[in-house]
């Protein structure tokens, strides 16, 4: 097995992880500040992808599409927060799960109503649709490289936002003591809407970036949502740092597992059985990872009890 292949796969894992991070960051922020489980977060991912595809088709510009995805997802997030989510903060997790499950149904079917059942067309921008040669003779798709860079930039931007701005200060205060910041005269309702909209916008951005690689279709958000949940549970709910490390861990485990396990089984099984077993185990691997982490650290890697 050539070293360059392993490095390429590790890059793939990193790119996958960075995408999950954009989803997980919003989820974990929303949970940390408002204590809300949001199953409908995958719907913002889908909203972003559809907004980007529709705008790019109308204007021919992928960049305008990205802007539209951020705006549409943030708007959808703010709208949903004001209309529904706001009433759920005081409820238990069970009510939150059910209400946001209902929102998934409404979002998915509503999108299908608007755009129809066929997948939409969204392509990687022409300038990025090629491979580049990395040091060490590794050929790698340029677009995926750009996605990694964008994701890492967003992660640092988020860190700056939370640790260096007034909004970030309020978010941190909200995480540690909700009543207190309300008593200090901070507009708590506005803060919550802002946090929710930021989380939704990040999910929308992820949807648009991934949408160019995949197909833009109804239901595309839910598989990513489940992965994002796995990530934030591994990282510790409420921790942005945990979400980043968890995302990369999950991305690498999944990609390398899918690639290495069948060959590993091939050492002592015949090829077709090895592929079948290896693929089966690989698809369960991240859930096994999550279970193992929780058994040893019931509050995740960076969670507080």
């Amino acid at each position: 097995m050539p070293v360059s292949l392993v490095i390429e796969q590790a890059l793939n894992g990193l790119q996958f992880g960075v995408m999950i991070f954009l989803m997980a960051a919003g989820l974990t922020l929303i949970f940390g500040v408002m204590g809300l489980i949001n199953l409908a977060h995958g719907s913002f991912f889908m909203t972003g992808a559809f907004a980007c595809a529709a705008t790019a088709a109308a204007t021919g510009s992928f960049l305008l599409g990205l802007a539209a995805s951020l705006a549409a997802a943030a708007a959808a997030g703010a709208l949903v927060e004001v209309a529904v989510i706001r009433r759920l903060y005081a409820r238990d997790h069970l009510d939150q799960v059910l209400a946001t499950f209902a929102l998934i149904l409404i979002f998915s079917e509503g999108t299908r109503w608007l755009f129809g059942s066929f997948p939409l067309y969204l392509d990687v921008p022409q300038a990025l649709a090629r491979g580049v040669m990395l040091p060490g003779g590794i050929q790698y798709p340029l677009y995926r490289l750009v996605v990694i860079v964008v994701g890492l930039c967003v992660a640092s931007g988020l860190w700056l936002l939370i640790h260096r701005t007034r909004l970030g200060m309020r978010i941190r205060a909200g995480e540690s003591d909700r009543e207190m910041i309300a008593a200090l005269g901070v507009n708590i309702a506005g803060l919550y809407t802002a946090v929710f909209a930021i989380g939704a916008a990040l999910a929308g951005l992820a949807g648009a970036l991934v949408g160019a690689l995949q197909s833009v279709q109804v239901g595309m958000g839910e598989p990513v949502l489940i992965l994002a949940f796995v990530v934030i549970v591994i990282g510790g709910i409420g921790s942005i740092r945990g979400a980043l490390i968890g995302s990369i861990l999950v991305g690498l485990t999944d990609t390398l597992g899918r690639f290495l396990l069948p060959s590993a089984f091939g050492l002592f099984l015949d090829p077709s059985a090895a592929t079948a077993f290896g693929s089966a185990l690989a698809s369960m691997l991240i859930y096994i990872l999550m279970a193992v982490v929780l058994i040893f650290r019931p509050n995740g890697l960076f969670g507080v009890a």
Binding site: L5, Q15, Q139, R144, R258, P262
Partner: peptide
């Protein structure tokens, strides 16, 4: 011969193997 997960959306790993 490579079997992927049903419903998989990212094929970067498989494409690297093809290469």
């Amino acid at each position: 011969e490579v079997f992927t997960q049903l419903g998989q959306t990212d094929y970067a790993a498989e494409i690297a193997q093809i290469r």
